[in-house]
Write a protein that binds this DNA or RNA. Structure first.
Length: 333
DNA sequence: CTACGCTA
DNA sequence: TAGCGTAGG
């Protein structure tokens, strides 16, 4: 998923508390939905569902997470992917195969009563469908949180908005947003908090990565940084066998990108991938307006349609000063 | 994921 | 009151 740049970016990650984040952030919506969908599950892998079997994990995630964002002075805008570029066709197909196979193994694991394996495979089989996307957008509207559909990749649009200064950062788990040129990337925004990793309880904090620090530290221009990404592989090209982030870094620093591609992958033309990262399809046609949450609308949707507990929903809304019959926002905006 | 109830 | 396990939908 995304680029395998973790190995060379470690020292540029700055952990921080959610409380200290504040400001506006363009959230990669598919990335966030995917995380909610993989994480909010029962021990056997079954996602939260209403009585009609419609998945509601993503709605739970969006609702409670955004309440916390608003409460802490973080104003998110959600950026959905538009049509994937042709360069991504193979990646999309491969992911679908992997998910479908995991879906099969989930069923098998359930059948033999292997709960642990079922959970693992269920997570790997998580898929975002049209109904989830539509219900997510509806809930965001009711919460007064802006969203938009990008012309192409959501991360590219989020990076563009951050570069324009319209948001303080792009939020995603993937490092691609840095290749798209976001000045600041926030990771772990939608997954921070207490998590269980191999039986142990750990605290996952949001982390910030500044592109300028990365480029200065690695001694690369942005174009060269993109070359490192291309060598290791991105959503838009498979990368070159046997070349990890550290080797790629050496190659690019030595000015041997072109030479290496010609030698190891003579049929691969990196031009279109480089061009896609440098100037992806993006739009200036957006307005980021944060409005008052519509309490009654939220209750009607979550509680009446999707069987959420009104007590829980109300308690959450009260944290941001939204009570029954009242639409006051308080001091946040 | 978050909320909540239970335990020390 | 903090920490932990589990329900939520």
């Amino acid at each position: 998923m995304g680029v395998a740049l973790r190995n060379i970016l470690g020292e540029y990650r700055e952990e921080m508390e959610l409380e200290n984040l504040r400001g506006t952030v363009a959230v990669d919506a598919f990335n966030a939905l995917y995380q909610f969908l993989t994480i909010i599950r029962q021990p056997d892998g079954t996602p939260l569902m209403d009585s009609e079997g419609r998945v509601t994990s993503h709605l739970s995630g969006i609702f409670f997470r955004n309440i916390n964002f608003l409460e802490k002075g973080i104003r998110p805008a959600y950026i959905f992917d538009g049509a994937p570029p042709d360069l991504k066709t193979e990646t999309v197909a491969r992911r679908r195969e992997v998910r479908d196979a995991a879906g099969e193994r989930w069923k098998e694991a359930i059948a033999r009563g292997d709960i642990g394996e079922a959970y693992k495979q269920a997570r790997a089989s998580a898929r975002i469908d049209d109904a989830m996307i539509a219900s997510s957008k509806r809930l965001l509207d009711l919460m007064g949180i802006p969203w938009m559909v990008a012309p192409s990749e959501g991360e590219a649009q989020a990076a563009f908005m951050a570069r324009q200064g319209d948001v303080g950062a792009a939020a995603s788990q993937d490092y691609d947003a840095l290749l798209f040129g976001t000045p600041r990337l926030v990771r772990n925004l939608t997954v921070s908090g207490r998590r269980k990793v191999r039986g142990r309880s750990v605290t996952v904090r949001p982390e910030r990565i500044d592109l300028s620090a990365v480029l200065a530290g690695l001694g690369l221009s942005r174009a060269e940084f993109i070359e490192v990404g291309i060598l290791t592989g991105t959503d838009f090209n498979p990368g070159i066998r046997g070349i990890g982030a550290k080797t790629a870094l050496k190659i690019v620093r030595a000015g041997k990108f072109q030479e290496t591609v010609q030698e190891k992958a003579p049929d691969f033309d990196p031009g279109p991938v480089r061009e896609f990262f440098l100037s992806p399809p993006v739009t200036e046609g957006y307005r980021l307006d944060w409005n008052k949450p519509d309490r009654d609308g939220i209750v009607a949707m979550l509680c009446e349609e999707y069987a959420f507990s009104e007590g829980r929903v109300d308690a959450a809304l009260q944290k941001i000063g939204t009570k029954a019959g009242q639409k006051t926002l308080g001091d946040w905006f």
